[in-house]
Nucleic acid binder design. Structure first.
Lengths: 330, 330
DNA sequence: TCGGCGCATGTTAGCGCTCACATTCGCCCT
DNA sequence: AGGGCGAATGTGAGCGCTAACATGCGCCGA
């Protein structure tokens, strides 16, 4: 920077001002500085900038590894939103989801002087963590427990699960089976509870529930193998689209057609879901919107709006071809 | 840090040494320092550390946005590998893939004093960029042009595409159609060329090619609609699994069964591919391995091993149920 | 014509750490 | 018992920037 100042015949402070877009710089001066910067290929040192200004322009993201669609797309759109607001992202993925590893991840990020933390881990382990964690910087949860803190961006899971269940009921099915996600994932629990609630409200039998799903197509397939041995199953709500895919596969292998024999509803609406065989009826979650809202939340928090909050994003039912009336419906 | 030093009755330098695990600290002293750190909840400031040491422990990652499976899983496994080696990651995603935006992304990362750059963008636009880009720090390409630079981690695309084509030929198909990826993606080109080469070598007719695929299931579906109107198509090699999925859907809609009427091979082996209907025969790419190799490459480069290189990762053919002999094969 | 006001720019002092070197201390060897 | 050596610790400077304040300069109105 000193070199630039020398070449442009100004002080280093003026260079700094130009770089920061401060007002009150004569155009001629600015041009000289800009030219010098260009000529020298100068690039300012962010570390020094952070050190001196105590602002890092960095926001930390903790996400569960494993490349799940939801967390991944949220992180990606968050990056875009952050970039647009002049922030950059530091990413940490969790190899295992425990309170300890979460805390370690947060520590790493905190050391990097991030200004805020975004936790995209809707896991039970994230709960005590976020509740008690007084880190001195804003923490926002994405897809987390919606009751834990107002600082949350999420899709309305309850509404989504009820929508899915009701859709199946409305088609004439007696009841709706459910293939749930892992029990330690908050969203899996919420969807399960909402499914059960909707069933009860409609005064239907609540079928027995099998845990063990882990969001993967494989686990959906395995649940499907068990389910397809059971008679009387005409409608299934799977906790996500991957599991629905595996389920459909298992059903097909057992000779049960979708949707003629069994109707299936998923959750997420993956880009691929319209092209499953059959195209999947599902609940759409707008993940990119979540990223944007999380960023908006952060900015408000950073401005001191201590209890900012954003409303839940609406879940929407996308009806395609994996659902139909039950086989012997009159 | 001064506070810690005071409390532990040592100098700030000793605190620094403890933090950095320097040898030659008396256990008693170390304990005092550790306790002081704990008591004060002290956390060292990375910015100051970087500034003073000129080492950031940070590696920059540029990846195409849009949440594609490949780039995403590479980035994720890279994060894990980096973490294991004591590095952290700064992530930038590209909203549009042009040389300009690539350069801007690199600039942002460079400002953050990253020690190396990983570019996970197998796009034509990345080519001149990486070739001419003298940034003074190691740049490694993942999934890039394999001839451009030795600093590349990638899966052997040529082998993969030939494997796919030959598998179909071996089953007895006269020729193999191809649904290619976008023409400005290096891998799409390489796969196309290898497919064509394999066909020529077997002295088969090379069917006309339609561009326009963009890796999405939708584009595969659209290509499939055109293809299914064409008679004589019995075998198709799709440039990735998503496109294969869309293709299968289009084929089904046109009343052509997979694999009885038409065989389909994909590329990537998504976690979901075994659960497509039918389970997809495909070429597996080991993306996590790519992340690990990229990290290994970086570490060697950082150690001064200027022209380190790693071999290509082998592509492997996974035979499932979307391929079979042609309908009227004798 | 001159004081004074405000815009443009310069000056100085750290931010919190690490590096290179200086110092101290304990202990062994002769 | 004393010199010397190495292990453990301390000291001072400076990394590249920004914040706060100081200064200079042109121009307006009386």
């Amino acid at each position: 920077m000193a070199d630039v100042a020398l070449l442009a015949q100004v002080s280093h402070q003026t260079v700094s001002r130009v770089l920061n877009g401060s007002p009150g710089i004569r155009p001629g001066t600015r041009d000289r500085v800009l030219m010098a910067i260009d000529e020298l290929g100068y690039r300012r040192n962010v570390a020094a900038r952070i050190l001196a200004s105590k602002r890092s322009g960095n926001i930390g993201v903790i996400t569960s590894g494993g490349g799940q669609f939801g967390p991944t797309s949220v992180a990606l759109s968050l990056e875009a939103a952050a970039h647009a607001s002049g922030y950059s992202l530091s990413l940490v993925t969790l190899s295992e989801i425990t309170e300890r590893s979460l805390r370690a991840a947060a520590d790493r990020l905190l050391e990097q002087s991030v200004e805020a933390l975004v936790v995209i881990v809707s896991h039970r382990a994230a709960l005590p963590f976020t509740k008690s964690f007084d880190v001195g910087i804003p923490v926002v949860l994405v897809e987390g427990d919606l009751s834990a803190t107002p600082l949350t961006a999420g899709v309305d899971q309850v509404q989504g699960a009820r929508l899915a269940t009701r859709h199946l009921l409305d088609l004439g099915h007696d009841t709706v089976y459910h293939i749930a996600g892992p029990p330690d994932w908050i969203e899996a629990m919420v969807r399960r509870d909402a499914w059960r609630e909707e069933l009860k409200q409609a005064r239907r039998r609540v079928p027995p529930l099998r845990w063990g799903g882990d969001w993967s197509a494989r686990s959906g397939y395995e649940a499907g193998r068990v389910l397809s041995r059971e008679p009387g199953v005409t409608a299934v709500f799977a906790a996500n689209d991957q599991m629905a895919l595996g389920l459909i596969r298992a059903l097909n292998e057992a000779g049960r057609r979708v949707p003629e024999d069994v109707s299936v509803v998923g959750f997420d609406d993956l880009p691929e879901s319209p092209f499953f065989s059959p195209p999947l009826t599902t609940i759409r979650q707008d993940f990119p919107e979540l990223g944007r809202r999380a960023m908006a939340l952060i900015q408000r928090l950073l401005k001191g709006d201590a209890h900012a909050s954003v409303p839940l994003v609406e879940a929407v039912l996308i009806i395609r071809e994996s659902t139909a009336p039950p086989p012997f419906h009159n």
